[in-house]
Amino acid sequence: MGYILLTGGAGYIGSHTALELLNSGYKVISFDNFSNSSDEALNRVEQLTNNAAISIKGDIRDEQALKQLFSQYDIKAVVHFAGLKAVGESTELPLHYYDNNVTGTVTLCRVMREFNVKKLVFSSSATVYGDAKHVPIPETAPRSATNPYGQSKLMVEYILQDLVAAEPDWGITLLRYFNPVGAHSSGRIGENPNGIPNNLMPFISQVAVGKREQLSVFGNDYPTHDGTGVRDYIHVVDLALGHVKALQYLEHNNGIEAINLGTGVGYSVLDMVNAFSKVNKVAVPYQVVARRPGDIATCYAEPSKAKTLLGWQAEKTLDDMVRDSWRWQSVNPDGYKS
Rank of each mutant, 00 (worst) to 15 (best):
G2N: 08
I4M: 03
L5I: 06
T7S: 00
G8A: 03
G9E: 01
G11C: 08
F34V: 10
S37T: 13
N43F: 08
Q47P: 09
S55V: 15
K57G: 15
R61S: 09
E63F: 03
K67W: 00
D74Q: 10
K76I: 06
K76T: 04
K76P: 03
S90W: 00
Y97C: 04
N100M: 04
V102T: 09
G104N: 02
R113N: 11
K133P: 07
A145F: 06
E157Q: 14
L160M: 11
L160K: 05
P168K: 15
T173Y: 06
L174R: 00
G182I: 07
A183V: 00
S185L: 02
R188P: 01
N198T: 14
L200C: 08
F218A: 14
G219W: 04
P223E: 13
H225W: 15
T228E: 03
G229F: 04
I234G: 10
A240K: 09
H243G: 05
V244E: 01
Y249N: 12
N253R: 14
G255A: 11
I256A: 07
N260I: 10
G262P: 07
D271Y: 12
A275L: 12
F276R: 15
I296W: 03
A301S: 10
K307C: 15
T308S: 15
L310Y: 06
A314S: 10
E315W: 11
K316S: 12
K316M: 13
T317S: 12
D320F: 09
S330I: 03
G335R: 03
